[in-house]
Amino acid sequence: MANITGRVLKYGDNINTDIISPPAYMELSMEEAAKYAMSPVDPEFALTVQPGDLFVAENNLGSGSSRETAPLTLKILGIRTIVAKSYARIFYRNCINLGILAIECPETDRISKFDVCSIDTEAGQIQNLTTGERYLCGKIPPHIMELVRCGGLVESLKHRLGV
């Protein structure tokens, strides 16, 4: 997984779990609930997002609830990679456990909606193919990379239990 390239959907600070996965829709199946992902700030999100898009935000992404329905609905909509300046810790762990790569980058304010970016996870670098800029990003710690490589915690458990 050296290079990941995708189109950006871009949000700002404090995109919390009530925004990503509004509680009013959590009683639905996850496929149904996914239609309302991000709806408090972007009602068009589920219609705009395409598989392989990069979800990019700024500070404190995923604050609030432990609800895995937040990264899960993003995953159902085709998001496999998230980039943010900083994360709330449960959201970060949930991403990893679901096999979503969550990358820290201090310069996401320089990235705009629909830019195309290419992420080199091993070099810890993001190239913005639209603007030509380069940004440094955090490298993924080995124990976390191992989990993501496996495809998440369920795949890792399968391996561990010999299923």
Binding site: E68, I90, V154
Partner: peptide, 10 residues
């Protein structure tokens, strides 16, 4: 501490 559902599965 709070954890997600897949983490709870583990």
């Amino acid at each position: 501490t709070g954890i997600g559902s897949t983490e709870m599965l583990g």
